[in-house]
Design a protein around this nucleic acid. Structure first.
Lengths: 221, 221
DNA sequence: CGCCTAGTTGAGGTAAGTCAATTCACGTGG
DNA sequence: CCACGTGAATTGACTTACCTCAACTAGGCG
């Protein structure tokens, strides 16, 4: 992400629960998440919520809203968060002066899309247990890249309700699945901590593969 | 899409069924679809397939594979297709000379992601009937933009099997849902043609909203 | 004519949802 | 210090949306 340093600007803080970006608005700012967790989600007209992705330190927030000039989703902090605001005017202007930056931003956007795609596949074609396992593994892999996790586990501030909204399940079922996985000696999620009880067996169970997460940065190094 | 004209290069043809991009490969080309339909999908280790999106004329093919330098998905033509190849070397080089182009490509990538997100929401939180209805409406809206559809309907070369793989349903269930929608006088999909029998009522039923599809082009005009 | 693929329909099974009750940890105010 | 409320996790009983298996039809084509 080092290439993106040039963009960092004003530092800001948001508390858990207060929307950063609101569905339907236009002319939003983009941010880079410095500390804490956030999530991007969509609310359906009938009130149902689908969480599209969680953002962890180092991730962009609201990039798509800025580029498309309108927001099709909302973003809210899961914990209190720190962000650095990226000025829209800058973003486009800077493309002219620093084409490498344009490539870096495009890379970030593509990585983002790849994560959404993987998520889509999980919801569409994986059973609930594999889905939960795969999701927690993927989160772990992402966190490891930024030094916040390992093959042992990681701190995870998500509630079972959030997990359910992300995975297209009911919170009741998420609870049952977590119990099942714990009883199988695969993974434990308790008191805000995810522990991989048997990483290799879990990877096999969830049919987890890294693919795009192998890449650690934009092409141009 | 006019801004992208500068990229158009060699014209090529692919027949239905032959992969353009194959999951796991690196150093792919990107293409712009000129005529016909394609689909991007992922195969899970257990053989299950999830179709991520369908591409129609004007859409990019394989852009993400190029940017991430590795392909996490496959793309195959649904019908025979014509494409124009976009040389990778060009794509990045040209960013330096034509920053407007970089913005246009980023816009295309973002629009792509927005479609995947909408798809994700559908699979995660909509019932089968609403999901099918919404999907066919969205396809119609996209086709209308490039002059291949209207509020009356459109030609659609998809089989019920493809639809099922896209929507995370079984083909049997897709069939039942289509019958149900037809009997409700909402929409008819038969012999390769989608007909909106009652567009307004269908929109209401599916809770369809346009949002990002309102936008017809990159910010910079 | 017979094969193949796409679509159609029925019967029965199952994964996951809903509703509801209970526990527990925490914070807040009397 | 305790009574109370609130939000998360947990578990049981019952319901349902969707899947699987399987049979049958209809069109296209060698």
């Amino acid at each position: 992400m080092c290439v993106l340093e040039g963009l960092h600007k004003r530092r800001r803080t948001f508390v858990a629960g207060s929307d950063l970006v609101h569905q339907g608005q236009s002319d939003q700012s983009a941010y880079i998440l410095v500390s804490g967790w956030a999530c991007s989600y969509k609310i359906l007209p009938d009130g149902e919520r689908q969480i599209v992705d969680f953002q962890i330190p180092g991730d962009f927030l609201g990039l798509r809203s800025v580029v498309l000039h309108t927001s099709d989703h909302s973003i809210e902090p899961v914990t209190d968060i720190e962000v650095t605001e990226v000025y829209v005017s800058d973003l486009f202007e800077v493309f002219s002066n620093t084409p490498r930056l344009a490539t870096a931003v495009l890379w970030a956007a593509s990585r983002d899309e790849a994560m959404v795609v993987e998520h889509l596949v999980g919801i569409g074609r994986r059973g609930a247990s594999e889905r939960v396992a795969h999701f927690l593994l993927e989160l772990g892999a992402r966190l490891s890249i930024v030094g916040l996790g390992s093959k042992a586990g990681y701190d995870c501030p998500l509630s079972q309700y959030l997990l359910a909204d992300a995975l297209g399940l009911s919170s009741v079922h998420v609870n049952r699945v977590l119990r099942h996985l714990r009883e199988q000696g695969l993974i434990t999620f308790r008191d805000g901590v995810v522990t991989f009880d048997d990483y290799d067996r879990l990877v096999e169970f969830a049919e987890f593969e890294l693919t795009y997460l192998d890449q650690v940065g934009p092409l141009l190094k």
